[in-house]
Amino acid sequence: MNIQANTLRSFVKHACFGLFASAALTLSACSAGSAPAPEPPLAGADIGGDFELTDKNGETVRWSDFEGQYRIVYFGFAYCPDVCPTDMQRTAQGLAAFAEFEPELASRVQPIFITIDPERDTPKVVGEFASAFSDDLMGLTGTPEQIADAASKFRVFYAKGEESEGGGYLMDHSRIVYLFGPSGEPLATLPADKNADAVAQELAKWVS
């Protein structure tokens, strides 16, 4: 089974453009208040840590490479039929909406997709999957041991499902979109299970 990048791009481009206007109102409201910002919900949590993975070009990527950047991190798999594409679509659209009104802040956010299916998700496959949603989304893979180590540090569960007669299979995994701060500290989860507008609103709370 091959990743159909063009099909995924079409899926992503079917965006709800009305969310941009909605996000504008939300972001304006956020900046209008003078109350001190609350503590991030994941502040102090033991989530995240050093990893050594591989990007679409076969180059080694480490967690420390993103020092000084906010990071959106999602673990999934490229052959996922619905949940992963939906979460990545909403996350990419939410970040794009945030960038419409806070371009300088949004430029400091690096979205990252990490596969939990290294058996099938080669550098080329994760690269095609990620680029279908955003040119800024970085797809990463690695050896089974590297993926297991990263998933453990990011508190992500995953397991291979039963194979079909044709050899295909699905992956069970945690459905979490994390937001990390410039020093790699966990800040919050992004509500990609809701919609892109909700993602934009959450980014506005914590990216500053």
Rank of each mutant, 00 (worst) to 15 (best):
M88F: 08
P144R: 05
P81D: 11
P41T: 09
A99S: 14
T60H: 06
F77K: 03
C30L: 14
E128I: 04
L53H: 07
I114A: 02
L8V: 04
P103R: 06
G33K: 08
E119K: 10
A96N: 05
R155T: 10
P123C: 05
K160A: 13
L53N: 06
E59I: 02
V199Q: 08
R108W: 01
F113C: 04
A29W: 12
L137D: 08
P36F: 09
I72R: 05
A188Q: 05
Q4P: 00
D117Y: 09
E165R: 12
M1S: 12
R62H: 12
A204R: 06
S174D: 10
L203C: 01
G181Y: 04
L187P: 03
P85F: 10
L137V: 13
C30S: 13
G167Y: 07
V83H: 03
A24H: 10
F20N: 01
L170D: 14
D172Q: 13
T189E: 11
G168T: 13
N195D: 15
A92W: 06
S28K: 10
E39K: 03
Y169P: 02
R108L: 09
F51N: 02
I147M: 08
S34A: 11
T91C: 07
D197C: 00
A32R: 06
K205F: 12
A150R: 06
V126S: 04
L179T: 06
G94W: 07
L170I: 15
K160C: 04
N6W: 04
T86G: 01
E162G: 00
G139I: 08
F101K: 04
T189V: 14
F17I: 15
P36T: 10
E145T: 06
Y169Q: 02
T86H: 00
W206R: 03
D50R: 09
K205D: 09
A5W: 02
V61D: 03
F66Q: 05
I112N: 01
F133I: 08
S174C: 08
G166M: 02
A159M: 11
V12N: 14
K205N: 11
I114K: 01
S31A: 14
K124W: 05
V61N: 01
G184D: 10
T141I: 08
T122V: 07
F17D: 11
I114Y: 03
F66T: 10
C16K: 00
A130N: 02
E165A: 15
G166D: 13
A37F: 09
V199N: 06
L27H: 03
Y158H: 15
D87S: 11
F157G: 00
Y79G: 03
G48E: 00
S208H: 15
P123Y: 03
D172V: 10
G58R: 04
Q89A: 12
L140A: 02
A96H: 04
T189I: 14
R9V: 12
F98W: 10
A159G: 07
Y169T: 12
E145A: 13
G127S: 07
K56P: 00
T122A: 06
K160Y: 13
P81I: 15
S164A: 09
L170P: 10
A32K: 09
K194C: 04
I116C: 15
F17K: 12
G184Q: 14
F129A: 11
T86K: 01
K56M: 12
G167T: 08
P40N: 06
G184S: 09
M138T: 15
W206C: 05
D65F: 06
D50E: 15
T86C: 02
